[in-house]
Design a protein around this nucleic acid. Structure first.
Length: 427
DNA sequence: CTATAACTCTCAA
DNA sequence: CTAACGTTGAGAGTTATAG
């Protein structure tokens, strides 16, 4: 039988910021989404003040000022570096690990005796605290869904101790009464649409979902929910996935810092976005066979004339060459663009993705050309890794970028730049 | 009518 | 002074379309 642990960093983005800014200790802190739009992370103090997840920043700005809430723009480079450090530590503490998201990982604890698991969880938590200054909670269960739920219990202090909760130690009665107290919407896979529908059927608690008729739910909902029910019963239906398969689609989209009406500016944005997406494509050694470009006005301004369109655009041949991809994306843009609208967002998605190794030579380009293109792109990527993103780029990407996303409260690159670290007096 | 493509919905972090 | 609201990806299920 498999045993899973879910390790999740508390208030991840906010906690990363606090590690490097001791002055923020004890203060309410929120981290904002791209473009400083919404709250995407809150410190414990900010949660205590009632700041909701996902609330638009402008709506709470005044309240924040009155309460002394600190707001920071998201610093994804910092969070990615800290995440990698967490993964490094966890990799030493389990034979198999699935990195589920930037702040969460599943671990395989099947090889531990049942009496050792809780202590192992405590050790994991202690080590990450000591080595990184981040606090994690650990949930342990016989399926990924149960491990998730145990983690929730640890975090909410509904069960377990010191941030670690092992369902394997609980009697059937204790599990029953615990699951009865947890709303069905807290179950992994039950979101804001499913929860009300389940409640309408009388399924309000985790226990009721666990004990419901799985086949019946499959008919009314989906095979996914049926699996969830099995998982809640401790029948592992989802495996640990160590190897992450290549992405089947690669997307880069951003809201602009201000609205754009001008085609020239839109062209520049699309060129840059396509370049970023192409870097991701090459990072997994793939080629794209088609792209999708979308542009749209601001739906939050219903009085303004609205326009949004997504255009699917097959490529003449699968490629990862930024020059070709940008050229095609710009052609798609010309087709999509309508003047007279204030555009708020654009995005580029690559799909029909295949590994480089499967490259099909086309009638119109020789193998030599393709190898040249590949070498050139690799060189560009290497230069940009060494000298920073954008050191080398296409002419189409250059120009005034007054439209770039807002990031007005960005913290320093603590993990990349020695001089960014706070100085403490020696002695 | 079937197989596939295209699109929609849901979820998650 | 005003207006101001994220991104990326997967998978299942449904509908449209081609042959």
């Amino acid at each position: 039988m498999s045993i899973f642990a879910l390790v999740d960093v508390n208030n991840f983005f906010a906690s990363c910021e606090k590690v490097f800014a001791p002055a923020l200790a004890g203060r309410p802190l929120v981290v904002l989404s791209n473009n400083d739009g919404c709250v995407v992370a809150r410190s414990a103090e900010a949660k205590a003040l009632g700041v909701a997840m996902g609330v638009p920043w402008f709506r709470i700005r005044d309240l924040a000022r009155r309460q002394g809430i600190v707001a920071l723009s998201s610093n994804y480079g910092l969070y990615a570096d800290m995440s990698n450090r967490v993964v490094e530590i966890l990799s030493e503490l389990a034979p198999q690990i699935e990195v589920y998201s930037i702040d969460e990982a599943f671990l395989d604890l099947s090889l531990l005796a049942s009496c050792e698991r809780l202590a192992h969880g405590v050790m994991i938590r202690q080590r990450i605290q000591d080595w990184l200054g981040l606090t994690v909670c650990v949930g342990i269960g016989a399926s990924k869904t149960l491990a998730k739920l145990a983690n929730y219990c640890a975090k909410k202090q509904l069960a377990g101790d010191k941030g670690v909760c092992d369902f394997g130690l609980f009697s059937a009665e204790k599990m029953n009464s615990l699951l009865e107290r947890i709303p069905v919407g807290e179950v992994w896979g039950v979101g804001r649409k499913l929860a009300p529908r389940l409640e309408a059927m009388g399924i309000r608690s985790c226990r009721q979902l666990r004990d419901a008729d799985a086949k019946h739910l499959r008919c009314h909902f989906s095979v996914v929910l049926e699996r969830t029910v099995l998982e809640l019963r401790g029948i592992a239906s989802l495996e640990l996935r160590e190897m992450v398969p290549d992405k089947q689609q690669i997307m880069y989209s951003r809201s602009f810092g201000r609205e754009i009406e001008d085609l020239a500016e839109l062209r520049q944005a699309v060129a840059i976005y396509t370049g970023r997406a192409a870097e991701k494509l090459r990072r997994q050694y793939s080629l794209a066979g088609a792209l999708m470009l979308f542009i749209r006005t601001n739906p939050h301004k219903p009085k303004a004339p609205q326009y949004q369109r997504a255009l699917h655009w097959p490529l003449p041949q699968a490629t990862a060459d930024t020059r070709q991809l940008v050229a095609q994306a710009l052609r798609a843009l010309e087709t999509t663009y309508q003047s007279g609208f204030a555009y708020q967002k654009a995005g580029v998605m690559f799909y029909e993705i295949v590994p480089c190794a499967l490259r099909q030579s086309s009638l119109f380009s020789s193998e030599i050309d393709e190898l040249r293109s590949e070498r050139l792109m690799q060189t560009c990527d290497a230069i940009n890794r060494r000298w920073g993103q954008g050191a080398l780029r296409l002419a189409a990407e250059i120009g005034e970028t007054g439209w770039k996303m807002k990031s007005g409260h960005l913290s320093p690159a603590y993990t990349r730049d020695w001089s960014a670290l706070p100085v403490t007096k020696a002695g």
